[in-house]
Design a protein around this nucleic acid. Structure first.
Lengths: 191, 191
DNA sequence: TTGATTGTCGAGCGGTGCTAGCCACAGATG
DNA sequence: CATCTGTGGCTAGCACCGCTCGACAATCAA
């Protein structure tokens, strides 16, 4: 019976999504330290070993959440960019959107860009969500790159924003002066 | 007997240092995931509860290592700075020294600037080692700040370097192009 | 109907950070 | 010198972690 097989695969894929969604929700509401395989299994109303029939381990679940988060980030960056016709304003809008994403969803951000991961970054094998997020940065840097290498300059912008995001999020920068820092950074990266 | 009290305090302080040194060495050679209270107790040849008579918990031990690391970093930055009379060359030397520190001692760097911590950053109550490290950055940024706010500009430089360091260390940037990224960043931050 | 396969689960392994409570020994007191 | 006392270290154990083994139930093929 092929249709039964199909139904099973459908149910399995649905459960897969359910696990990722539960992990993400738990992480976003209570932090990754509260995401244990036991609590996750309880949330999806299956036993622990079921998780391991879908994912190689807890890290793989975190990676799945991270990739999903990259898709969200890419969309937010694109929207910020498209709302600003002027290239300089678009750069600033995208930078602000990035920092706002990190501030509003710290757990998601952590899984994407802080925690140790085996997701391949910066290669052709990178997941499309990741390329989309980086591509949003590239597209907003491109009109302002001048004769500087586009991809490298984008990496610099991203790195600087990442530094601001993580150090701000961990209370290692003075809480005020947030906008001043962004001003100085963006002024420096303009041609 | 006062001298006996003194001897005890001396021995206690010595053991305190021993614990921090053991934690640091274990972290630097095998990573923080290998630093467990059991292994640490074994290294210093005491039982686990002794650790808790010196530190409130494992996090406090990590913090002690982090503060020690800040002292090391401050010294390296000062040496890099003082070897370059030209301000621009000094900035570059300090930036390179910082990135090299992060590359060569990833576990130490992690405890200092990545892991969650309750060390107060950017306030008058910050540990002197921390102020010294930040001060080294300030002193090298100062001749180049122009009319920009010195402390804010230093925070931007530090954040950008931190972003480069962590994203490079977690293989999220293309391994080549390291120097190009630093070139672009520093050119942008010059007046 | 029977045998094989698939999928799920309880239970448990070796680890974690941390702590309660016992016990030996040093110092004070008679 | 003998006894009491308090400090400080240790053994043992708690509750939890990620992960997996082996039994069991349900489904499918013959």
């Amino acid at each position: 019976m092929v249709s039964i097989q199909q139904r099973r695969e459908r149910e399995r894929a649905e459960r897969h999504r359910l696990i990722v969604a539960a992990a993400r929700e738990l992480a976003e509401t209570e932090g990754w330290e509260s995401v244990t395989t036991r609590r996750l299994a309880e949330r999806v109303e299956y036993s622990q070993p079921v998780l391991y029939s879908h994912f190689k381990g807890k890290d793989a679940i975190v990676s799945a959440v991270a990739i999903e988060g990259c898709g969200d980030l890419a969309q937010m960056l694109r929207e910020a960019r498209d709302a600003q016709p002027d290239p300089v304003a678009a750069l600033r809008a995208v930078a602000e959107a990035y920092l706002e994403f990190a501030r509003a969803r710290p757990a998601l951000y952590d899984a994407m860009f802080v925690q140790r991961t085996d997701i391949p970054f910066g290669t052709p094998e990178s997941p499309p969500e990741l390329k989309a997020a980086f591509g949003a940065f590239v597209s907003v840097v491109e009109p302002l790159a001048g004769d500087r290498d586009l991809e490298t300059l984008t990496e610099v912008l991203w790195s600087a924003l990442h530094g601001l995001a993580t150090l701000t999020g961990s209370s290692r920068l003075r809480p005020d002066h947030h906008n001043s820092r962004l001003d100085l950074l963006l002024n420096g990266l303009l041609p």
